[in-house]
């Protein structure tokens, strides 16, 4: 049996609003698991309040939101604000899916750390997360 990572990255994956397209989020979940990460699934039709509460209970390092049916310009800034207000603003907030280029500046300004649009390679997401995690561990040491 492989030696376990003493400290795997914990990632919460969720979908906000009425969007029920699950293929993307499922593919990401499996890719992250293969990369040795712990993925917490919260299910569909989540509100920003629910995602923030779950992220805090689970003490994840990363919150990843898959969005494929608009609403992201309202939902994501709200989620970022709720996390900050709850003292959990240090979590990395990612968004993926259908996000028009022109929405990106607004999202980034609101506290979304990175967006991955349609057609992103899951390997790039894994690399991005691993690099971010390595930075966090170095900063802590």
């Amino acid at each position: 049996m492989a030696e376990m990572h003493r400290r795997p990255l914990r990632v919460l994956l969720a979908k906000l609003g009425m969007d029920t397209h699950t293929v993307g989020i499922t593919v990401i979940a499996h890719a992250l698991r293969e990369a040795g990460m712990e993925v917490i699934f919260t299910g569909l039709k989540q509100t920003p309040e629910m995602v923030a509460a779950a992220a805090i209970q689970e003490d994840v390092d990363v919150v990843g939101i898959s969005t494929l049916s608009a609403g992201h310009t309202r939902n994501l800034p709200k989620l970022a604000r709720l996390l900050r207000e709850a003292g959990a603003g240090d979590k990395l907030l990612l968004a993926g899916g259908v996000i028009p280029e022109e929405d990106r500046p607004l999202l980034e300004q609101a506290g979304v750390d990175r967006t991955f649009t349609m057609g992103s390679d899951t390997r790039d997401i894994v690399i991005y997360l691993n690099e971010w995690w390595a930075e966090q561990l170095v900063a802590e040491a």
């Binding site: 492989a2 795997p8 293969e34 040795g36 712990e38 917490i40 919260t42």
Partner: peptide
């Protein structure tokens, strides 16, 4: 957890979603 990668998909919360916002449930 995967015995090979150490990764895991933890999905039990999906069935307990309605209690997420209850401050007396953790």
């Amino acid at each position: 957890s995967s015995p090979f990668t150490g990764g895991a998909i933890l999905g039990d919360r999906v069935r307990m979603g309605k209690h997420t916002l209850d401050p007396d449930v953790f």
